[in-house]
Design a protein around this nucleic acid. Structure first.
Lengths: 250, 250
DNA sequence: CGGAAATTTGACATGTATCAAGCCCTGTGG
DNA sequence: CCACAGGGCTTGATACATGTCAAATTTCCG
């Protein structure tokens, strides 16, 4: 057999949910094998996005939700004045676009932070399938509910936490998301720029940079460019929650 | 007929969706009459809540979502330290409790701000009914999607807006919600304390008070206790969006 | 009517943004 | 392979918006 044939990437196979390494985290997580086939059938493959390329732009007609397969993305909303707000980062297995259902337009642009592949799930077909498959419907409700809970956590972070607490919380959340996906929770690479982190956390870039430097000098993390090593998870957890006066306890 | 009989409140009738004045805003908004009967059948009436009484408490098992019929409520989440965060106010026709689906527990307490009545909708029955009624399912998806969009708007408010802009945005949003419900958008009563507003907007109570005083001295609003009169909606809209340097345009 | 809670107002402290400058990566073209 | 350019990142000095503390005043409710 000529090599170019055997080397041909088995795309269809790779994109099947049954063989996807993310299936235990993703939308079809609760489906039986035969139901998963049905789900599989409505998914569209997409060419990988390059860094900086938009998955969709703010205001475009809502047609599909997307599950991240690899890479990462950010969601950015621009309001009247040029002021933009980064409202979310998306990692593999997470669902993008659910907030567009209501108004039938995507309320923000979603842009790849690195080379990224996604599964496109046309929403009308997903909705119909969710009629037949109670487990799928339940999972969809759960996904949306979870995103609401996370938004509320973010609201608390933005309205009650200091810059240090925000930065520590951010690192912990990332760490946890990597851990759940089978990666090291202590050593990972940030796919987003400092400016993105600042925008997301409601801080100036300079503040993000300063805090990372300080965390480093306190031996809580080691940061080199976008490589992060968490050296003291307990300290980081303490930094994320504690109020200034509570330090005396230990 | 003795008076106490004729005075008996026709509860069953009043709680029917078909005769409810909120039906065009509430969950069953898109249903045909006969479908609405089915929906009606799963709803449970509840005794009115008094001011300060909880609809449910943080951590309780999730069983139902609730539609507000009259009055108003606040949602409060307490984290490890006593620090609590007010994440939402709920007005008539709005759905409470959707963020509990995922973890099967309510992530925050919801408390009445005044005498308040709600319709209880057991979620398992709602889910089953949403299988049969595509319009109901669509409306449920829309409600959750809308709440996600509103959360993101709140995130932008908390991370990018000044105290003045937050306060102006808050008044405008309230005004708009009253308008949609058929009440005056210019004259209304706040059911929440200043402390609640501050907690919600990420501001100190004193700041809320000061800003309201200033808005009043600028003749943008007239505030007397919890009574609010919006005198200059255009000015208020300008205050909500404009950055400091953009004032020069007019 | 009285006491407690809610609200307002003032004085001061401080965390973080802003402005400014320099450094360091990364990728590119010679 | 190296030099260069430009963006990304870091660090310092300063300003200011808003939090905190304190106290007076008003409103609410039994």
């Amino acid at each position: 057999m000529p090599e170019y044939l055997s080397r041909r990437r088995p795309l269809l196979h790779e994109t099947r949910c049954q063989t996807c390494s993310l299936s235990s985290l993703c939308l079809p997580l609760a489906l039986e094998l035969e139901d998963m086939d049905q789900f599989d059938a409505i998914i569209r493959r997409r060419a990988p996005l390059k860094k900086g390329e938009p998955l969709f732009r703010q205001g475009e007609a809502f047609t599909s939700v997307f599950a991240v397969r690899s890479g990462s993305l950010k969601q950015v909303t621009i309001e009247g004045n040029g002021n933009d707000q980064l409202t979310n980062f998306y990692l593999p297995s997470e669902l993008v676009g659910l907030d567009g259902i209501d108004e039938q337009h995507y309320p923000g642009s979603v842009v790849a932070l690195e080379t990224t592949t996604v599964c496109e799930i046309p929403f009308d077909r997903l909705d119909l399938l969710s009629e037949e498959l109670p487990e799928l419907r339940a999972q969809l409700y759960r996904s949306m509910s979870k995103e609401m809970r996370e938004d509320r956590r973010m609201m608390r972070l933005l309205s009650r936490k200091t810059a240090d607490q925000r930065m520590a919380s951010f690192l912990i959340t990332l760490s946890d998301r990597f851990r759940r996906r089978g990666y090291s929770p202590y050593s990972f690479r940030l796919s987003m720029a400092r400016a993105d982190i600042g925008n997301y956390l409601g801080l100036a870039v300079e503040t993000v940079s300063r805090i990372l430097s300080r965390f480093q000098s306190q031996n809580v993390v080691a940061v080199s460019g976008r490589e992060v090593n968490i050296l003291g998870m307990p300290q980081l957890l303490a930094l994320a929650e504690e109020d200034i006066q509570e330090v005396a306890s230990s």
